[in-house]
Amino acid sequence: MKKYISYLSIGVLFGIIMTKSQAISWYRIYEMFRFDAFHMYGIIGSAVVLGVISVALIKKFSVKSTEGTPITFTTKNMSIPRYLIGGTIFGLGWAMAGACPGPIYTLLGNGYSVILVVLASALLGTFTYGLLRSKLPH
């Protein structure tokens, strides 16, 4: 139970960050893809630079999780079509709906109930992928 409270708290932190940084805004995503402002690039860029340093430090010092197990990182299997085609499809949706999954949840909390439609469609998209998976190039 205590563990779940920590997952919930980290989620609350994430929802507040997404809202207050305006990363949940459709406008900010549109602006990003038009290269009109640095804002989103600054957010993602600084998160990645610090993320690379953090992961390297975790590996270097073999940091353990609070459960006492070593923190492990999974190496993703290499494929070009899977990531390029899948990524492009995701990008089309991201720029259209202006939200990726994190902001979809956060927007619901912000009171945009119509985002339930986006969430339901995203679930349908995930389900459809599950049905077609064996027929798609990976």
Binding site: I44, K76, R82, Y83, I85, G86, G87, T88, I89, F90, G91, L92, G93, W94, M96, A97, G98, A99, C100, P101, G102, I104, V114, V117, V118, L119, A120, S121, A122, L123, L124, G125, T126, F127, T128, Y129, G130, L136
Partner: peptide
């Protein structure tokens, strides 16, 4: 809303992850 959401869900799983 509908097509956008669908592409997000389909593409994220196809690509094995989102943002």
């Amino acid at each position: 809303l509908v097509v956008g959401g669908f592409l997000i869900g389909f593409g994220a799983r196809y690509a094995g992850g989102c943002t």
